[in-house]
Design a protein around this nucleic acid. Structure first.
Lengths: 347, 347
DNA sequence: CTACCTCGGGAAAACGTTCTCCGGAAATTT
DNA sequence: AAATTTCCGGAGAACGTTTTCCCGAGGTAG
């Protein structure tokens, strides 16, 4: 009762195990009569294939490892959700690994997933440099797609938002609404989001003000840093605080208001990612929305199309890099400076 | 090169497959000399056991299914994180399933996990009633622990926060700081968190004001509902708005401020769960912190101690229910009414 | 000296699939 | 009518482990 196997179905249907397998998997045509009998028996017994045995024999577990730095980073849950759905739609299950933002843990988790014979890996690397080795060796064994962050050139396929385009959207918007003295609160380190957003700010801000590219402070992607950074840049009286992500922006906004600054009247605040928190801040943050569902779909697509790793190393095929266009979400925190005191809406 | 198996190690070490297995698994004493040779060979070849084959033979995948309503619910990521770590520490991997808040999807996901032969299930049910059947049948096949929410009496082991105690903490705090006209914004439906928190409010609020238990509106656990609910209850001029979770509280707080209410001077706002967003609201929300790490540890413990489902149904063993004590986190949104205008700190 | 353990080790049977052969019957071709 | 192909179905070999037997050598007890 506990465990109905192919043998049981075969016995009940009066045929061989091979035939049952063929009917159920549809791998080879089988006589109509027999097929019906088999299906009936399987139904009646409540047969469910043992995925473990199937995996062993067919050398494919139908399982994808999802490795990320910290599930508590508010940008990830929605991404995880979309990925889970996209993969489940293809009948693949998701093995989750949280790395605690530590490259060593990351390497351990990746190894554990490979031991479990995942068919592929979806990976948001912890660190651009320090994740490199583990990622490269993993990519040599299974199809691997990097998500959201890069990991050095040529290591693996990757899909991410176009950070430069996003930052450009922000700067254009600020320019269009009359801001002229922007400053930037970014993140140090080699994470591609940090580097690219910073670079894009530096490149684009000069249009507004030749001195703007220099008004930049770098910390990490946290609320605390956002708060602290404001104390460093507020004395220069910028009329816009451009932040490398929403967490920083939330902290910055909070601190600005503590200091009595008028947002958005006196200074605009912008973020990046459009995490749920962004819409809840007061005033709501203007930010750049990542196309999360598309990122997930694209990642799944890359995985599906990446043929299994070659047994003979051979000439490494070129990696594919997908960049998706983000979308600007304008909210109260960047309403035109000339507007009413009430920051809720922008007519 | 691609795949080193026990056979390869055995050949290299000059012994049989059985011996290698025994050395590596430590299931039976093996001669010191041979053991050394085996270990050396395994090391040299970089042998990694195939977990799939191991699972098939030993009828245990070392895998736990984690099923939850919506990973985007901000309370879950930290719970998922702790669970992942607790389970990984025992060498078990986590198969993640997101149900999109839909009982039908939930049933599908559970079935898929069972087909994959998970050793156990950790489950946050979508709905108290509509998840019942799927949960019960799953619980009959593998050890299953319910998390955060119940699912009817006697269905499965469960671990959750003590909602009544948490609500009592809130009400005591409000009473101690001079609030006398509380109202409650809760959630309708049968979810245990909704029901228990509501009940506890009704039971405890009468101490402050005989009419308080009646000042209650029910919607769902969302920011939008929090906003909408304020329009319903604000006309009664409560001096405290007790919310069933932090999302509701965030919405309520936002709307109250839009209406020009003075928080906390005129009215206090409290939440439940202590999600990251709670500390970021302005003023920061007073709330009830769930002991997330302990919940996770306790769930893992229950799983480990729950013996495998009996092959013969037998007399159902009594389910175990664990309730953990929450902690009150006092923040600006409930600073004493007599305090300064500045809500940042409570001296 | 025989009988009986213990100890280290190997051969081989599971676990539940998938898939490659193979064989016989029917259908088609020559 | 003989020769070939097609069609269905079964037997059995994988897949890589774990685990149950079994065997021989050496030690100890009778």
């Amino acid at each position: 009762m506990a465990e109905v196997t192919l043998r049981d179905v075969a016995r009940a249907a009066g045929c061989s195990v091979a035939t049952v397998s063929r009917v159920l998997a549809g791998t080879r045509p089988v006589g109509a009569e027999t097929a019906r009998a088999v299906r009936a028996a399987a139904d009646r017994l409540g047969y469910r294939p043992n995925e473990v045995a199937r995996a062993l024999r067919s050398r494919s577990t139908g399982t994808v490892g999802l490795v990320l730095p910290q599930i508590t980073n508010p940008f990830f849950p929605s991404l995880v959700r979309e990925l889970e759905h996209a993969l489940h739609a293809e009948g693949r299950a998701v093995l989750l690994a949280d790395c605690d933002d530590d490259p060593a843990t990351e390497a351990t988790r990746i190894a554990a997933l490979l031991d479990r014979r995942v068919d592929a890996l979806l990976l948001i690397p912890v660190d651009e440099r320090r994740s490199r080795d583990a990622v490269a060796t993993a990519a040599a064994r299974v199809p691997l797609v990097l998500l959201d962050r890069g990991c050095g050139p040529g290591v693996a396929d990757s899909v991410a938002v176009d950070n430069a385009a996003g930052m450009a959207l922000v700067l254009d918007h600020l320019a269009a609404t009359g801001r002229r003295r922007p400053c930037f609160i970014g993140a140090a380190g080699t994470a591609s989001a940090a580097v690219e957003r910073h670079a894009a700010y530096v490149a684009g801000a000069a249009v507004l003000d030749p001195a703007a590219p220099r008004r930049t402070v770098l910390g990490d992607f946290s609320v605390e840093w956002g708060r602290a950074a404001v104390d460093r840049i507020w004395p220069a009286r910028p009329d816009a605080v451009v932040c490398a992500n929403d967490l920083i922006a939330a902290g910055a906004l909070q601190r600005l208001r503590q200091l009595g600054a008028d947002v958005p009247g006196e200074v605009a605040v912008t973020g990046f990612d459009d995490v749920p928190l962004a819409g809840l801040a007061d005033p709501a943050l203007t930010t750049v929305r990542q196309p999360v569902a598309e990122l997930a779909a694209e990642a799944a697509r890359l995985l599906a199309h990446r043929p299994a790793a070659p047994s003979i190393p051979g000439p490494r095929r070129p990696v594919r890099t997908v960049r998706l266009a983000p979308e600007l979400v304008v909210r109260g925190a960047s309403a035109p400076a000339g507007g009413a005191e009430d920051p809720r809406t922008t007519p």
